[in-house]
């Protein structure tokens, strides 16, 4: 074997080893780290799910791919934080934020959605990007452009960490109370949303609209009202996501781009599926963090920026409608 061939072979084997062997050795070598990374992926996944949920609720009922979801998360988070800052008790701040998001839903329905009824999806999509611009300018005018720290004490969110399994491993595994809070509260919220969709009259009406809005209209379901409800609902999710995302760093307008991280979750889980958003978020979150940590040696840092899309795309090649999306039937 001559020099170049050997060099090629060693590079190739290094690459393949980095891809298929080293990470698995690392799994076994430091199980504490694996648990740590997976738990982190889970918590990131829950956060993605929360943003994705906002997309899904709106898309399901009105066919609008709401690009303004990211900015709504920021807006909602800042509303809560600013209200607490001026001295409003936390619980009222959240209630007031719900009212604000509701009012916003009414305004959006009146000004944006109603005049654009029956337009193709891409037009509505563009309108929501316009909305995102508007809200960004509006939000900065009201709240100022500076990011604000989330007053976690006032909101009663614990900010410490548990160190567990320290006896078994070299280093204990850290479980952040912030993540646990997000997990529990997020879980409760998802349960509440699913109950609302399945067990209440409005929820049934909402699903009827999602199935066939013409038919829903003809049995007397008021479409504008349903739209207001779904936008409020996604505003509600946004408040929660905004506060929790903000608590991890700061509540500010640069958070809006994080919404883009929820998009692969959407294509993976399907645009119309609530369980898809949850499961998709967790799958993307965990694989992303695993890839970023264990495969950085061969792929380089920052893989988590796009690996979610690749995972989603691979799954899409086999199931074009996503994991839980409705089967697409086309007729000529």
């Amino acid at each position: 074997m001559d020099g170049t061939a050997f060099e090629f072979f060693s590079i190739a084997s290094g690459f393949l080893g980095g891809l298929f062997v080293d990470p698995f050795i690392a799994f076994v070598d430091r199980p504490d780290k694996l648990i740590q990374i997976v738990s982190q992926g889970l918590s990131a996944g829950i956060m993605y799910s929360l943003v994705a949920l906002g997309f899904v609720v709106i898309f399901k009922a009105s066919g609008v791919f709401n690009f303004a979801q990211g900015i709504m998360v920021v807006f909602a988070g800042l509303t809560v934080v600013s209200l607490i800052e001026i001295g409003v008790p936390a619980i009222f701040a959240i209630l007031l934020a719900i009212v604000v998001m509701g009012a916003m839903a009414v305004a959006i329905e009146r000004v944006v959605l109603r005049p654009l009824v029956n337009q193709p999806g891409i037009i509505l999509f563009m309108a929501t990007i316009g909305l995102a611009f508007f809200l960004e300018g509006f939000g900065q005018t009201i709240f100022g452009a500076d990011p604000k720290p989330v007053p976690i004490d006032a909101l009663g969110i614990p900010d410490d960490k548990f160190r567990v399994l320290g006896d078994f491993f070299r280093k204990p595994v850290r479980i952040y109370q912030l993540d646990l809070t997000a997990l529990i509260a997020g879980g409760l919220m998802v349960a509440a949303i699913i109950l609302f969709l399945n067990r209440t009259k409005i929820g049934r009406a909402l699903r009827a609209v999602a199935d066939d809005n013409q038919a829903a209209l003809s049995v007397g379901i008021p479409l504008p009202f349903i739209w207001v409800v779904v936008w409020t609902l996604s505003g509600l999710v946004a408040i929660f996501a905004g506060v929790m995302w903000g608590a991890q760093s700061q509540a500010g307008f640069s958070l809006a781009v994080i919404a883009l991280k929820a998009l692969p979750v959407l294509i993976l889980g399907g645009f119309t599926s609530v369980p898809g958003a949850i499961l998709g978020g967790i799958i993307i979150g965990v694989t992303e963090k695993l890839a970023e940590f264990y495969w950085r040696g061969v792929l380089g840092d920052g893989v988590e920026q796009w690996i979610g899309y690749v995972i989603a795309l691979i799954i899409l090649l086999f199931r074009p409608q996503g994991l839980f999306g409705e089967k697409i039937i086309e007729r000529v």
Binding site: L116, I123, A127, G130, F133, F134, E136, G137, Q140, A145
Partner: peptide, 18 residues
């Protein structure tokens, strides 16, 4: 002025689409 620019730009987009 920049904030207003964002708002007007967004509003104009929606307006044109409508």
């Amino acid at each position: 002025a920049k904030h207003l620019e964002f708002m007007i730009f967004g509003a104009l987009i929606i307006f044109f689409l409508i």
